[in-house]
Design a protein around this nucleic acid. Structure first.
Length: 586
DNA sequence: GCCGTTTTCGGCCCGACTGTTTTCAGTCG
């Protein structure tokens, strides 16, 4: 079981306890433990064996046995008990805006609502507004949120899907078995409906034997493996705790890459590639790349594109038909890969620094020095420390006084690490009237100012676009943080009518963030493409609240920027020197 | 439920907003 899947189960336990009405700090303890497990790479099987799980911060005498069972058997009797008391579907209700644990329980106990489908019906019949404490407004809020949730139901964030599959492929390779990530995950879709890996068949070994030998699914017996095998699909399908299926496809060596192309998709791309093949005298099928009924050994996927006189089309660009046309090298011979600058999108290797991170000066969990050390380990040339300046009380934000104190600490840390330029910055709130939370004279002294909307996200007065335009026009603002404010699968954010913001940003040189957090991916691909069209520049940032999250940069780069076709010269933090990444210079 | 103790229990993420109340519970950032 992947550590992220274990973390997911712990989080589920917490949520179920919350619905049961348990003490909120107890719930919090499960969430904290889950967080810890998700982001730290402990050798869990060894620690479980040696009774050392309690060494993990947040794991005490009560969580230890639950965690150990989960690690060693892939099951949890505690979770199963909880599910007997609280229907699984109630968990989904918690994602609906306006529904917390109390309301979820109320809906269940008085209306028998046990999931999203029940809720939908109850809302349609206006039975929800009759409940004590609820009313018409609440019903409308739920109805609106439900639509957003339905769009993402049964889907898993790329932020979990990708690392889980990378781990799995890594474990396979330790056993000499080749695996490639395919499907939506390979294309960096924001969310995926299934987890797909293509495994190469091992000569003289059945797929079930190969799988049993690699022990990547410790809880699966040989017989259960044989049951999960679908000979027609040539794939195993397993249920995961994430609610999406894990599919392990098998193919022999000769047909491996043809099958990989087919499984990577999307269907429209595979179809047009097959047409191209036909035109070039080949036949591209699901299970082989042929010329006159003979399997062609093209080497790998790139080789197949080459034989079709095409540039390699990166998987994350295959959903865009106009890009496929660009890949054709007519009359082309020789080295198609070299002539493919048209796919020269910004890449993770181009990123020279992160311009939006938090520390324990506001709601981050690590100190400035920890973040700087992590930035160094990633090979960055610069890092901007941008803690919150906000009047939201939950976050202990930076006041002018605390900001002064922080600047002194940044100076000290800077001296210690001369190889990384630590930029002074702030993430300042855009208030309800479009003013910023800190005064201009203070902002003008900082290297970099991120301005973001955290208040009145619901945009009660319909002023959001004006607020953003006002912030963009402020000469002290370098970057607009998570411009739409969406949270994937939870709230849609403001995705319509941002044209004026993009135009203002292009005119003033204020960059727009592509927030790399897999929960946000904001700007999303379509809007990033629109902003690019409008002439805007971008900064791809992680918004990290802990050092590990600095590694999430790739999600912004791939799942938004590259899918939108953004070139590196439009990305501030792909620039070599920090001064170039700041509008004002330094 | 965890942690850190002044070692056996109290603190841990606070407070505005909302819609529903008739004095506030629940949600959310």
């Amino acid at each position: 079981m992947d550590r992220r899947e274990i973390a997911h189960v712990m989080r589920t336990m917490g949520a179920l306890l919350e619905i049961k009405g348990e003490d909120s700090f107890k719930v919090r303890a499960y969430e904290k433990a889950a967080e810890r497990l998700a982001y730290h790479d402990y050798d869990l099987p060894a620690m479980a064996r040696e009774g050392r799980l309690v060494e993990i911060p947040g794991i005490g005498k009560n969580l230890e046995p639950k965690l150990r069972e989960l690690i060693q058997t892939g099951r949890s009797s505690f979770l199963e008990r909880l599910f007997q008391e609280v229907p699984e579907g109630l968990l989904d209700l918690l994602r609906v805006p306006g529904i917390g644990p109390k309301t979820a329980r109320l809906l269940h106990e008085s209306l028998g609502v046990a999931g999203l489908q029940d809720l939908k019906v109850a809302l349609q019949e206006h039975r929800v507004q009759s409940l004590p404490g609820l009313g018409k407004k609440r019903e409308e809020l739920m109805e609106k949120g439900l639509r957003e949730i339905e769009r993402y139901s049964g889907r898993l964030s790329i932020g979990i899907a990708l690392p889980v599959l990378e781990n799995l492929v890594g474990a396979l390779s330790l056993h000499g078995v080749r695996g490639e990530i395919v499907g939506e995950t390979r294309r960096y879709e924001e969310t995926v409906a299934s987890l797909d890996v293509l495994m190469q068949e091992v000569g003289g070994e059945s797929p079930a034997s190969t799988l049993a030998r690699t022990a990547i699914l410790p809880s699966a017996s040989q017989s259960s493996l044989e049951q999960a095998w679908d000979p027609k699909d040539r794939a195993f399908a397993f249920r995961t705790s994430f609610g999406v299926a894990l599919r392990l496809h098998f193919e022999d060596e000769q047909a491996f890459w043809a099958r990989a192309i087919s499984l990577t998709g999307p269907a429209s791309f595979v179809e047009s590639l097959a047409k191209r093949a036909k035109k070039k005298g080949y036949r591209l099928e699901e299970r082989g790349f042929y010329q006159s009924d003979r399997l062609v050994d093209a080497g790998d996927e790139t080789g197949i594109f080459g034989l079709l006189d095409m540039c390699f089309v990166p998987p994350e660009a295959r959903h865009r038909p106009e890009l496929i046309g660009l890949a054709y090298l007519e009359g082309g011979e020789g080295e198609p890969q070299e002539g493919c600058e048209r796919f020269d999108f910004v890449s993770t290797g181009d990123i020279k620094g992160d311009l939006h991170v938090h520390t324990s000066w506001s709601d981050g969990v690590a100190g400035i020095e920890d973040m700087v050390q992590k930035a160094r380990s990633l090979g960055y040339s610069y890092l901007a420390i941008t803690d919150h300046a906000t009047d939201l009380k939950l976050i202990r934000g930076l006041t002018p006084e605390r900001l002064e104190a922080q600047l002194a600490e940044i100076r000290d840390v800077s001296r210690k690490y001369p190889d990384v330029r630590v930029l002074t910055g702030v993430e300042v709130d855009i208030l309800k009237d479009g003013q910023l939370y800190l005064p201009d004279d203070l902002l003008s002294r900082l290297d970099l100012v991120v301005a973001s909307v955290h208040q009145d996200i619901g945009d009660a007065k319909g002023e959001l676009v004006n607020r953003l335009v006002k912030a963009v026009a402020n000469p002290n603002v370098d970057l607009i943080g998570h411009p739409t404010g969406r949270l994937i699968g939870r709230r849609p954010g403001h995705q319509a009518g941002l044209g004026p913001v993009f135009e203002a940003a292009a005119a003033s040189g204020t960059a727009l963030e592509i927030n790399s957090s897999p929960q946000r991916l904001d700007l999303p691909e379509e809007l990033a493409a629109a902003a690019l069209e409008a002439g805007a520049t971008f900064a791809i940032c992680t918004d990290a609240h802990s050092p590990e999250i600095l590694e999430d940069m790739r999600f912004g780069v791939y799942a938004s920027a590259r899918r939108a076709g953004i070139p590196r010269d439009k990305v501030l933090n792909a620039r070599e020197r920090p001064q170039e990444a700041m509008k004002k210079g330094s």
